[in-house]
Design a protein around this nucleic acid. Structure first.
Lengths: 200, 200
DNA sequence: GCGCGCGCATGACATTCGTCACCATGCGCG
DNA sequence: CGCGCATGGTGACGAATGTCATGCGCGCGC
């Protein structure tokens, strides 16, 4: 019997996933949490074999949770289940020692399969991401990132300059670089691309 | 036995919700779809008593799906289950004759309850939204909405004009109106505001 | 010291955006 | 019919944006 913990911030999804996995005869949901902090405490108490966690949760994110588990020397193996097909997320997940990364777009049955595979010591990476994670890494440096983030919110160059204590011309230069690097046509498209890749 | 159809674009969530609801003795999941179009066809075939649908799905959204059901004179009662606590969504849902609006943040058990309530002819609205839905209503008309949606993706006025078969000047006019109505400083901020309110 | 790269700034220029006043068409309605 | 009203368009103008070439200081390696 594989003992698992589930962490997912949306209660309804948490409940549904737990119900689905509990139907498997070889899997038992021993703990559930709606944020990373609770999840960490429960993991320390229950010592689950496998941990299934979302990434975007209030407080401690799934990635931080995974890192914390590793730091505490817990044997639990981690599967990330998330909406976001962002190479940046996958890269950070793997760095945190995560053994599985699935998308919520994947068929439901795959989750149980993945849990078994990982319990046996295997790895499961969403095929959509397996290849592209390493080939195209984040081309932005962090001044470009900062500027682009604000531009994506709709701030003007002047407002961005004021917030970051730069001149307006510099802001425009950085945006221009970012737009070039991302192959975008303007600042908004650039922000969209970067966000979608998980680079913001 | 309550016969239900579930529409939800993330397969894993769809599977999990279906598994959970099928465990209820008085509920039977007779159809599932990952987009509004499939859902509509299945609804016409299966004539479910209750339809559970997400809002944000590729192709036909849950709101459009609900409107289409009403238009086809189907007796099915609709429950929206979504991540987004946006007043605009709720308002449009109610306009489409939807009987329930739940958040994925709500406890899982509430979904089955809501299905029963609605099957009996009742209504269920997420309490977080019940009050605020009516106070600030959507000031946009739908040409402004269409234009703003594309502008938020980073398209230029010229590209938007081409897509919508309008002149560039007209596009700029519509954007200008939208920016004014929303109190924004530019198109990007306007798109952000509208999106966050659920008006896009 | 010298050159070099890097972070930041400036100035100039063409393009795009935001605004406004105004025109044309079409449709419902008294 | 004439009228208002909604829908698209035009043209013009200033402001914001995107792009480049260039300058200037500062740390770092040699």
């Amino acid at each position: 019997m594989i003992r698992i913990l589930i962490a997912e911030d949306q209660s309804m999804i948490l409940g549904a996933l737990a119900a689905m996995l509990d139907m498997e005869t070889d899997i038992s949901v021993v703990a559930r949490a709606t944020n990373g902090n609770d999840a960490l405490h429960l993991a320390l108490e229950e010592k689950p074999d496998v941990v299934v966690t979302d990434i975007e949760m209030p407080g401690m994110s799934g990635l931080e949770f995974a890192a914390a588990l590793r730091e505490k020397q817990l044997a639990a193996r981690v599967i990330i289940v998330t909406t976001f097909a962002r190479p940046g997320y996958l890269r950070r997940a793997l760095d945190a020692g995560v053994k599985g990364y699935l998308l919520k777009d994947a068929p439901a049955q795959q989750l149980a399969e993945a849990i078994r595979t990982i319990h046996r010591g295997g790895k499961v990476i969403a095929p959509e991401l397996a290849t592209e994670a390493w080939e195209c890494s984040d081309p932005l440096n962090d001044r470009e990132r900062r500027v682009l983030r604000l531009a994506g919110e709709g701030l003007s160059s002047a407002e961005i300059a004021k917030q970051l204590f730069l001149s307006e011309g510099t802001v425009r230069n950085y945006l221009s670089e970012a737009i070039g690097k991302l192959g975008a046509g303007n600042r908004v498209e650039a922000a969209r691309i970067a966000r979608q890749k998980g680079w913001l």
